[in-house]
Amino acid sequence: MKPNVRLLRKSRQYSEEFKKQVVADFESGELSVRQLSKLHGIANPVIYRWIYKFSNFNEKGFRVVEMEDSSGKKMKEMEARIKELEAALGRKQIQVEYFEKMIELAKTELDIDIKKNYSTPQSTGSEKIKKK
C-alpha cells in the first residue's frame, strides 16, 4: 500500500525591494514581462500584479498592456527607417554633387557665376518702383 502522499505547493515570498527592482527593470525597457518571468522563474500574472502595485507610471483605472515582441518589432521598424533615410541621404548627396558640377561647368565654359558674389551690394527690392 502506498502512503497517502500529496504534493505540496511551494510558495515563495519575495521582498518588497526585489519586487520593486523587477518593476524597475520592466519600466526601464530593458526587459519585457516575458523575459523577467523566464529570468526569475515567476509567473507573468504575478509580475503584472507587482507592476500595478509598485509602478511609478501606473494610474488608477489604466491597464498595463505589453505587446508580444514589441521591442523586437520596434527595433526592426527603426532599422528599416534608418535604411530608408540613408538611401534618401545618398540620393540627395548625388544631387548636390551634380549641381555643384553644373555650377562649376557654367563658370568655366560659359563664364556665368551662379554662386552668390559676396562683394555685391544688397538689392533694394523693398523700394517702390515708379511707373512710367
Rank of each mutant, 00 (worst) to 15 (best):
I129M: 03
R63C: 01
A106K: 07
G61S: 04
D111T: 07
E59H: 03
V96W: 01
R9F: 09
R49I: 01
R12D: 10
A87M: 06
S37V: 14
E109Q: 11
G41T: 14
G41N: 13
I82C: 05
W50F: 13
S71H: 03
K130P: 11
L39M: 15
I114M: 14
Q95P: 02
K20I: 05
Q122C: 00
K76Q: 05
A80I: 02
E17K: 08
K53D: 07
A106S: 11
T124I: 00
E16I: 05
K115F: 06
V46I: 15
H40I: 12
K92R: 07
A88T: 08
F18S: 12
V65H: 00
E68Q: 02
I51P: 14
V33N: 14
A24L: 11
P121G: 01
K128M: 08
F57Y: 02
L7I: 12
R81G: 01
S28E: 14
S123D: 06
G41A: 15
N56S: 00
S123M: 04
R81T: 01
Q95A: 07
L110T: 04
M1C: 07
I94R: 14
D113K: 13
I114A: 11
E86Y: 02
S32G: 15
E104A: 09
K73V: 00
S32K: 14
R49D: 12
F57K: 03
V65R: 00
G29S: 10
K115L: 10
Q93T: 06
R63T: 06
